[in-house]
């Protein structure tokens, strides 16, 4: 129920962001053989994978941090975040830098993807609501299913996938291994 409501809200906000009925642009990328799409407005830049500094005591999907022209940016392993195994690094592995609005202002996050494909326009009429199951990732991570050349691409709800709140919570659980309430 709540998810339907939430996704309804998302559709509205996506509409507002795109303005009227103009088709929105999406960046498509592949990850573990599946094609995903990401609203272009959130994408800041795409860089080659490299020089990631690991952060100890963190869950596997937090790969580490990189130096992005003087700013320290956390890097998330999307594959691990979706519950799969960690991405293997290949020649085409990229980090997509995503800009998100959070409570404490704008925040940049890096996302590891297997390969970046292309920028597509997907008209609103070509977007189906997410299936309630079967996509192998959490339903609230999906904003919709875009039809491109007879195939479906999963349009990610990136605000949910990279929710700072949730990641911080998971990081804490990963870190805490049973600290008592009076810790500190």
């Amino acid at each position: 129920m709540t998810q339907i409501v939430a996704s309804g809200k998302q559709a509205v906000s996506a509409k507002q962001a795109a303005g009227d009925d103009s088709p929105q642009q999406y960046l498509t990328f592949s990850l573990g053989g599946e094609v995903f799409a990401l609203g272009i407005l959130n994408v800041k830049e795409i860089i080659e994978f490299g020089n990631v500094t690991e952060i100890p005591m963190m869950p596997a999907f937090i790969r580490g941090v990189i130096n992005l022209r003087g700013a320290v940016v956390p890097v998330i392993d999307l594959s691990a975040r979706f519950g799969g195994k960690a991405s293997t690094i290949s020649r085409r592995t990229c980090i997509v830098i995503v800009e998100l609005e959070s409570e404490d202002g704008k925040q940049d996050l890096g996302v590891i993807v297997d390969a970046v494909n292309e920028v597509l326009e997907i008209p609103r009429t070509e977007i189906e609501p997410p299936p309630s199951f079967g996509a192998k990732i959490r339903a609230d991570f999906i904003k919709g299913m875009g039809k491109v050349e007879g195939r479906f691409v999963i349009i990610l709800n990136i605000e949910r996938v990279l929710s700072t709140e949730e990641i911080a919570m998971l990081a804490r659980i990963g870190d805490d291994d049973g600290s008592t309430a009076n810790a500190e």
Partner: peptide, 12 residues
């Protein structure tokens, strides 16, 4: 700063 997702990290 390490950003808000690491705010609970202890020791760093």
């Amino acid at each position: 700063p390490l950003g808000s997702i690491f705010r609970h990290i202890k020791g760093i």
